[in-house]
Design a protein around this nucleic acid. Structure first.
Lengths: 339, 339
DNA sequence: TGGATTTGTTTATTGGTTGAATTATTTGCC
DNA sequence: GGCAAATAATTCAACCAATAAACAAATCCA
């Protein structure tokens, strides 16, 4: 570690001692074999320290999970039920109960939940206010406030973010764990009734100046095409949204390919992850998308764009939500130790 | 400054002393009036310290300039001549002579040129190799190597970058100076024979993983439209490139608007700057572009996209190039003091 | 078993920041 | 004109985190 950071061994020792004492790191009991010389003490993120509570509310399910520092899912609760008739109050109350169960189970397991984050399929303003979630029928819902009224969650900092953004973060965590790459760049595309995207640039989610990035569903594919509920014509959503997919649409893959080619031409994104309803359809969609990418991406001859399905499936958003909590601890461990 | 940085006045004093001694800052002679109490010593970036040498090679001109720490252009040389028949060797030799004149004039004026950067209308690989500059007829030209063979430039670090990227940096500098905003987000679009773009996110140029970002000219506008030299159909370049503009094209503004709407939907970019050949045509292009943006950007009802012409005109790229040198000094002044 | 090798700890030292006190220079009021 | 209040800059001892170098510990290999 000293070699990797440029600090002296003494400094690293002092810092590591603090982190071990604070429960963020643990020393591995069978020390790793390192060859000649005194064996190094193995270090790993602690599985007993702070944890993140992530939850998601979507059209047909509620879900909550607790993820520890190592990225392992320690608790996972899913409740399938159509949320559209419920209204925000009932949905959030039910989600609160689910989350409370997850938290209690995790703390019985020795974890300390450091915070919570909620994924919603809609536009979220700063402060966690859900501006509008069209498919849930929500408008201006103060989700953190309502969740905090559950006694078991009252003391937690609760943040809210868009489902596609958090799913992208979930996939980011999965990708950095899988490959060794520390700061990958990719676009996560979530096909639901609408189409959202989360853009990860150099290992960081790019939310846009006002948090309105990722609206790939309203990128124009056919300028004079079908009218969209947004008022424009030819939006991607009309050709590759869930309704279009259900209607045996030959245009879905091609339309996606055209829109994704624009993203790659603009941003030089080397990897595209297909999630939501696209994940199970990956095999069928792939050829059509790749054909358009190959044709329309200027640099496709130099390096082809990699296309893959979401590694976490439907859990991506909830896992990403939990990960935002973990990430906050990891980014400033001293703040956690001072608490 | 102590209040702004959170450091103590003692610390700020010590650091400022170093910067003044090193010629990076100067104390203002008539101290600014601050009200009651002992007047503060005014500080400003030194106009006599390190400076950046920026140059540009384009189809019909060569240009070089020297910009000081304050952002003021201290020397500016432009030589109009068609570079297409010249070949890379002759063009770079002529540019080298121009740059040498600029440097000597600047140093006679008390400046120390800290480095140089070159803007080219083409794809640049890491290390400054110009992969391809289609409109100059260049292929795999080691521009830094050839420029360093000019004796007056031999000792300078020379970098090379794409014209649109550097022009975006030039506009960034102009925008931060104009408004107080420290890290603006905008897209700079350069209309030349091809169409390039430089994307500035939160005050930083985003080059893409492999440096291939900004290829907005090959974003699809009409999927089954005109064939493009890149092999695809319906690329923006075919409708809003310089040739299309010259041909009295009613589609140029609308096509641009469609492509720009995609950028805004994806990235939530609040400002778009039109440069290159678009700058003088701004008034004509604006209504058509704004119409499409209003229609196709999902959040245009919440906050309209701001459209403006390039503040620096044709000098943007060269100024941006010089600014990269200045920026390096500003980002790590200690390195400059240690030199 | 002993030397080579690598890791971890101890120790005095250093360099940069802090905090409090001090000095300097103005404005505004009587 | 003089004095108080306000603000800025400097000085200096104390502190803290990181360093460097020496030392101790634990392994491998001959």
């Amino acid at each position: 570690m000293a070699a990797a950071t440029g600090l002296t061994r003494a400094t690293v020792s002092a810092l590591v001692d603090d982190l071990v004492a604070g429960g963020l790191l643990t020393e591995l009991d069978p020390p790793p074999r390192t060859g000649a010389g005194r064996p190094a003490v193995g270090l790993a993120l602690s599985a007993a320290g702070p944890a993140g509570l992530g939850f998601e509310i979507n059209i047909d399910y509620l879900a909550a999970c607790v993820v520890d520092l190592t990225g392992t899912v320690r608790q996972r609760f899913v409740e399938y039920a159509d949320q559209r008739p419920s209204g925000a109050g009932d949905s959030l109350a039910a989600l609160g109960r689910l989350a409370a169960r997850a938290r209690l189970a995790a703390e019985a397991d020795g974890l300390t939940v450091a915070g919570a984050a909620l994924a919603v399929p809609g536009l979220v303003a700063g402060g966690g206010l859900v501006r509008v979630a069209p498919n849930l029928g929500w408008q201006d819902v103060d989700a953190p406030e309502m969740l905090r009224s559950v006694p078991e969650l009252a003391d937690l900092p609760i943040s809210v973010d868009n489902e596609a953004n958090l799913a992208a973060l979930g996939e980011l965590r999965a990708a950095t764990k899988e490959t060794q790459e520390t700061s990958p760049t990719f676009l996560y595309v979530s096909g639901e009734i609408g189409i959202g995207a989360g853009l990860v640039l150099d290992g960081e989610l790019y939310r846009g100046v006002r948090g309105w990035s990722g609206e790939i569903g309203h990128v124009t594919v056919f300028p004079d095409g079908r009218p969209c509920r947004c008022g424009a014509r030819g939006c991607l959503e009309q050709y590759a949204g869930q309704e279009a997919l259900a209607g045996d649409e030959p245009l879905a893959a091609s339309a996606l390919g055209i829109a994704l080619a624009a993203v790659v031409n603009l941003l030089d994104v080397p990897v595209i992850v297909l999630g939501g309803a696209y994940a199970p359809l990956f095999a069928e969609l792939r050829p059509g998308i790749e054909e358009e990418l190959g044709r329309r991406v200027l640099t496709s001859g130099l390096a082809p764009v990699v296309l893959r399905p979401a590694a976490l499936g439907a859990d991506a958003a909830m896992r990403g939500a939990a990960d935002t909590v973990i990430r906050a601890v990891r980014d400033d461990p001293a703040a956690w130790l001072r608490r």
